[in-house]
Amino acid sequence: MELAQQLEDNIQIGAQADDNSQQLLTFILAGEEYGVDILRVQEIKGWDSVTPIPNTPKHILGVINLRGTIVPIIDLRLRFNLETIPYGPTTVVIMLKVESEDRSRTMGIVVDGVSDVYNLAQDAMKPPPDFGSVISVDFVKGLATVGEQMVIVLEIDHMLNSGELAMVEKAQTR
């Protein structure tokens, strides 16, 4: 209940925010707080079973029926090669609009739970440090500090358009 109240407050603040700032929806994944541009969020829904698609990587859980369209669901823990935990009552699916080259697609990501909505001034976001080859920073847009907390802002277009999710298929060999 408290969270909902907080969210509401933040949204109110968001309404007054000036054009320079950006609103982030943050979610929790393995104890870390990640953020995505709130304008990309289509809806948040509880976890429900999916239809798996054969011969796809593990992190692509499958597809669901979102009001008549078929939408793929990606487990972000698996995507980031994190340890999996059983889905609980806070587990949610965030439906995101992903822009690829010529069109936009809808995809869902499974996360541990939604956290908050923040207003973020444009200059408050710092570029990610170079981790070398340990972690790909392509998926990270920047780092933001909210209070004492660090929020990792994700580059969702890049994250959800790469590898197996890419629009462009590998040249078909027949």
């Binding site: 239809t51 078929i70 298929e169």
Partner: peptide, 27 residues
């Protein structure tokens, strides 16, 4: 027939998906 490609991509061996009477997706 519902397209898998709208939000995903073509998958070898599948021509699409459909929604069954109970709302679940079948390939």
């Amino acid at each position: 027939i519902k397209s898998l490609e709208t939000n995903f991509r073509r998958v070898d061996g599948l021509s699409g998906a459909t929604i069954l009477g109970d709302g679940t997706v079948a390939l």
